[in-house]
């Protein structure tokens, strides 16, 4: 039986954090003030950074990312086309979102069987072990294959599909740069968070029926769809 689950978010519910200052301390303080107003609201919220000023300080992004994590937010990407910032962002493990407007309502996946269009061959990033708490794996412009599990507190981000031979207990972001045909495959699912192209779902919103066997998660009509019938 296939169920379809209601989603809480859309691509727009990726919180966008506009950065209007290039001073890290000021920025941190401003964030702290915001959080103090609604502490629970920000826990586990995926955040895309949107710098409105050039960030000249080469440690700015790294410090900001660390701070956001400390405050339990999940910085996943940055909107920029600036080469220096892109380099910083890659170093800080952030996905790059192009500046043009991200599609608000992704079209219904019309070609479910086709591969994602890729400029040139880039094989999947292969991780031979489990991803452990505190670790983050980022597969830029490609798929990632995790041969172990994604443990609680670990994070896997890919612009393409995410394949997990073990159990997903941490956070997974597929299609992190907005690729709506990206999928997540897992032998077992008990995640903290799943996200495809910005649409995310927390574990408490995932039907336990999907948490036992092999499952495919895809994005259809702005919803995460769970398919457990793939292997018959």
């Amino acid at each position: 039986m296939r169920n379809i689950i209601d989603l809480k978010g859309s691509i727009l519910s990726l919180t966008v954090l506009s950065l209007l200052s290039d001073q890290i301390e000021d920025t941190k303080q401003a964030i702290a003030r915001k959080i103090d107003q609604a502490p629970d609201f920000f826990i586990g919220v995926p955040v895309v950074l949107d710098p409105q000023v050039p960030l000249m300080d080469p440690t700015f992004l790294a410090l900001l990312v660390e701070y956001l994590r400390q405050r339990k937010m999940i910085p996943i990407g940055i909107r920029t086309e600036d080469d220096v910032m892109i380099e910083q962002a890659e170093y800080a493990g952030l996905a790059i979102f192009p500046l043009e407007k991200v599609k608000k309502h992704p079209k219904k996946a019309v070609e479910p069987k086709t591969e994602m269009a890729q400029p040139g061959l880039k094989t999947a990033l292969l991780v031979k072990s489990s991803v452990r708490s505190g670790q983050q794996v980022v597969a830029k412009d490609r798929d990632v294959i995790i041969m172990g599990s994604i443990n609680p507190g670990a994070e896997v981000v890919a612009d393409g599909h995410v394949h997990v031979f073990g159990k997903v207990m941490g956070k997974v972001f597929a299609g992190a740069s907005g690729e709506t045909t990206a999928k997540i495959f897992a032998k077992q699912l008990a995640p903290e968070l799943l996200c495809i192209a910005g649409l995310y779902q927390l574990s408490e919103d995932i039907d336990p029926a999907y948490q036992t066997g092999f499952v495919e998660v895809s994005l259809q009509d702005n919803k995460l769809v769970f398919n457990t019938g793939l292997l018959g």
């Binding site: 452990r132 708490s133 505190g134 670790q135 609680p152």
Partner: peptide, 12 residues
């Protein structure tokens, strides 16, 4: 959970 973290650090 902490042991899992330290295992990650051992590997890195």
């Amino acid at each position: 959970r902490d042991s899992d973290r330290i295992l990650g650090i051992l590997q890195a």
